[in-house]
Design a protein around this nucleic acid. Structure first.
Length: 408
RNA sequence: GGAGGGGUUCCCGAGUGGCCAAAGGGGGCAGACUGUAAAUCUGUUGUCUUCGACUUCGAUGGUUCGAAUCCAUCUCCCUCCA
């Protein structure tokens, strides 16, 4: 008998709502189900939010179900108005194609797309050549504007303004589901909890047009205990692309989550078995750091691979226990470009530790900068060129940001 | 197309001729306290060669000794009418 993925998802707190609890449970336990999740390629890398969705997909695939990942190359041309207060910037076809390619590459890391196991499709394939008249007659007839206006996702926008363009998003997503239902026998749509109304739209469309029953299930959004979206960093989102967010930074992000969020994150973002989680759940106070280490390591391992996770872990341990580690964020400057003595501020600026010298000055004045574990008091200190050769110097900003600066 | 309202620093939002690099809040960053947590308190938050200088208040031009503030044109957004 297959392990019940339904129970797994539930136990881990991934599920938020579903359309037919009993039927879905039964379906998942008895049949090989084809299901889908949509991703709008609005950036050139996936972020943790997507990762959560991929986890659900992975859980499902492990249990023998067949995932379809829909890349919204077509729908993203419209932009989902859900949860947005303003209209999204319109993206060009080229941007979207590029993003779709990036998404595909990253996803194949988590989901096995070998034949028959999973599919990855771009809805641009059917949307770009859609005939407006036909669409209106075949699909749009089934939607009631009166009903749509009552949906929560549009309510907030009614006050601020909602364009007809965006109003159509729901129809398009519904059409996706219908299309997949017809052509691939897809009977279940999953998505973040904010997708609820869009999913319902698809289910109704399938019922009306094909007379078939389809199901929907949403899962928890990745939020902090305070309800704020997680995965925000000063650079925007917490990207999965190592170029946009280094494995070390990625590791540190999770190493530093709030106490209140650790267990939740482990459940949602790792495959750590429930027994282990129950043990970690009992930890209190300082002991919770163990849970954080596990969380950070496991998530990093899933996203960047075991080797990178090890490296990130070792670096972090080295830095926070001894103040030294071979592998930390670093910048190497070209020696010939440097004078005999270079102001520390210049070096910090070059390494990206500070965005401006004013910021650096303030940091130093407030006692927030150390060089080789020695606090810097004077904003105008200079560093001799020879100190930068070999291992260079370790600049510490605040309590947690380490950066090696060297010259060659 | 007509009538009105509006675009202020990361965000929200005050500011209607000099006291404005611009109140207040949020967020960010740092310090203290800690557990690489939270809460709290404190400082800080345009750039630079930090004495001081320079650039910012949708864009461009103008009035003025002096403009975020007044005028003109343009542009974008919102509301109401068609």
């Amino acid at each position: 008998m297959l392990p019940s993925v339904f129970d797994t998802l539930k136990e881990r707190g991934l599920i938020a709502q579903m359309t037919h609890e009993e039927e879905i449970k039964k379906l998942l336990e008895e049949e090989k189900v084809t299901f889908y999740i949509g991703f709008d390629p609005t950036a050139d890398s996936l972020h943790v939010g997507h990762f959560l969705q991929l986890m659900v997909m992975a859980h499902m695939q492990r249990a023998g179900h067949r995932p379809i990942a829909i890349l919204g190359g077509g729908t993203a041309m419209i932009g989902d108005p859900t949860g947005k207060t303003d209209m999204r910037r319109m993206m060009t076809r080229e941007e979207l194609d590029h993003n779709v390619a990036c998404f595909k590459k990253q996803m194949s890391r988590f989901i096995d797309f070998s034949e028959g196991k999973a599919l990855i499709l771009d809805n641009a394939d059917w949307f770009l050549n859609l005939n407006y008249m036909e669409f209106l007659r075949d699909i749009a007839v089934h939607f009631s504007v009166n009903r749509m206006l009552t949906f929560e996702c549009f309510k907030s926008r009614l006050e601020r303004g909602l364009s007809f363009l965006e109003f159509n998003y729901m129809l398009l997503q519904s059409y996706d589901f219908y299309k997949l239902n017809q052509e691939y026998g897809c009977v279940l749509e999953l998505g973040g909890d904010d997708q609820w109304s869009n999913i319902i739209g698809g289910i109704e469309l399938i019922r009306r047009k094909a007379g078939k029953q389809a199901y929907g299930m949403t899962f928890t959004l990745l939020t902090t205990s305070e309800g704020k979206k997680m995965g925000k960093t000063e650079k925007g989102a917490l990207w999965l692309d190592p170029e946009k967010c280094s494995p070390y930074d990625f590791y540190q992000y999770f190493r530093n989550v709030d106490d209140a969020d650790v267990i939740r994150c482990i459940k949602l973002l790792t495959f750590v078995p429930m027994d282990e989680i129950h043990r970690l759940e009992k930890l209190e106070g300082q002991e919770l750091n163990e849970a954080k280490r596990i969380l950070a390591y496991e998530v990093t391992k899933l996203v960047h691979g075991e080797e990178e996770a090890q490296k990130a872990k070792k670096t972090a341990e080295g830095l926070f226990s001894g103040g030294n580690a071979a592998d930390m964020p670093s910048t190497e400057l070209v020696a010939s470009d440097l004078a005999e003595e270079t102001p520390l501020l210049e070096l910090m600026l070059a390494s990206g530790l500070i965005p401006s010298k004013g910021e650096g000055r303030r940091l130093i004045t407030q006692g927030g900068v150390s060089v080789n574990e020695e606090k810097v008091a004077d904003p105008n200190v200079t560093i001799k060129k020879e100190k930068l050769f070999g291992d260079g110097i370790i600049v510490k900003k605040g309590k947690k940001v380490y950066h090696r600066i060297s010259a060659k």
